[in-house]
């Protein structure tokens, strides 16, 4: 199976050089090809599986617990202004 490496790179916001495209394209296609082996199995009686472990309804009560390390989170901001994350122009 061939993969549109340019489209995948764009979705992942990765800028690839022509050489990288040549390198990664076949690699990604090979991975997909390997996964295609699964198509040989008969899965007609298998329900789609979203989770491997049979657990359900893992919930928390609606209780506010303030976070202790907001400052640490803000410290991870590449840039900050007025206690907000500063980001470059979004739409050109």
């Amino acid at each position: 199976m061939r993969i549109d490496v340019e489209h995948v790179a764009k979705l992942a916001r990765l800028g690839l050089t022509d050489e990288e495209k040549k390198l990664f394209g076949p690699q990604l296609s090979a991975i997909l090809g390997y996964a295609e082996n699964l198509n040989q199995l008969s899965t007609g009686n298998v329900l789609p599986t979203s989770h491997a472990i049979p657990i359900k309804n893992v919930l928390r009560e609606d209780k506010v617990i303030p976070c202790a390390n907001v400052d640490d989170i803000m410290a991870n901001a590449p840039d900050e202004a007025d206690h907000m994350f500063r980001v470059p122009r979004i739409v050109e």
Partner: peptide, 27 residues
């Protein structure tokens, strides 16, 4: 009172980035 997937408050009009935690900021 709290967010969908973490225990931060959803109070309207709080100081910017006061109701955040590792979960809702995707750490």
């Amino acid at each position: 009172q709290s967010k969908m997937f973490c225990a931060c408050s959803i109070k309207f009009g709080s100081e910017p980035n006061s109701n955040i935690c590792p979960v809702c900021t995707g750490q």
